[in-house]
Design a protein around this nucleic acid. Sequence first.
DNA 1: AACTGAGCCAACCGCCCCCAT
DNA 2: TATGGGGGCGGTTGGCTCAGT
Length: 234
Amino acid sequence: MGRSPCCAKAGLQRGQWTANEDQLLIKYIQCNGEGNWNSIPQKAGLLRCPKSCRLRWMNYLRPDIKRGNIGPQEEDLIIKLHALLGNRWSLIARRLPGRTDNEIKNYWNCHLKKKLKEQGFAINESRLSKRRNAINKSRNNKIHHVKKKKKKDGVACIEDETGTKIYIPKPTRFTSIIKSSDNYQGNRENDDMNEDSDRTRRNESKCITLTHTVAQSKIEKRNLNLLLKFSLRA
DNA sequence: AACTGAGCCAACCGCCCCCAT
DNA sequence: TATGGGGGCGGTTGGCTCAGT
C-alpha cells in the first residue's frame, strides 16, 4: 500500500525548521518558483525531505499567508463551509484567502469543535481523536512513548457478494436541494469543486455509490458556488 | 517551586490519485 | 495495461507554553 516515509531516509533533518533553513527555501523558491519538490531540497541545499519542504512553504513561508487570529467573519465562514463540505480542509481553505488548510484544521479542532459542542451541536469525534485525548492524559502523567496505533479506518468501502466494490461517499447535507446538471460544459481544469466527481470516477469499474452526494450528483463548480453564495447569505 | 492538565500549532505520517513511461 | 514517482490531502503527533493547584 503506502510507501515508506520519505523522511525515513538517513541523514535527513526533521522537526522544527530553523531560520536558516527557511531562508534557503524562500530564496530558492523566489528564484526558481514552486514545483518539482523532489529536487528542491538538494538544489536549495536543505537536508529535508521534499514533503517537509512543500509543507513548510505551503503552511508557513508563502508570502500570501495571512497572519494573526481568525476573525469572527472567517470563523463563521469556516463553520458554514464545514457544514457544506465536511472535513475538506483544502477546499475550505481555498475560500479563505491567506489561510492554510492546516491552520483551518487546527482552528477547527482546537476552537470550533469545542465551541460548537458547548452550543449543543453534535460533532462526530473519530475513535482516534478520542484516543488522542487518552494519550494526552497518559502523556501528562509521564507515560511517554505511546506508540502510534495503526491505522485509520480507511476508505469506507464494502464489497457485495459479486465482488462489486461499493464506496460509501462522505455525506453532504445539501444534495437533495440540488439537481444534477447534466448540461454543464464547464472548464474541468479549474473545477476544484469537482473533486468528488473525481473520487467516484477513480473507482471506475464495478462501482456503486450509495446515497446522494456531491459526487454522483455531478455537481459542478458553478452550482456549488451558487449554493455556497446562497447558504452563506442565509 | 513543582507538578498536572489542557491548549495550541508546526510538522509528520500514511494514503490516495494523477500521469508519465 | 501495468507500474511507480510526484504531489496533495486529511488525520495525528510532538513538544512547547501556560494556568491552576
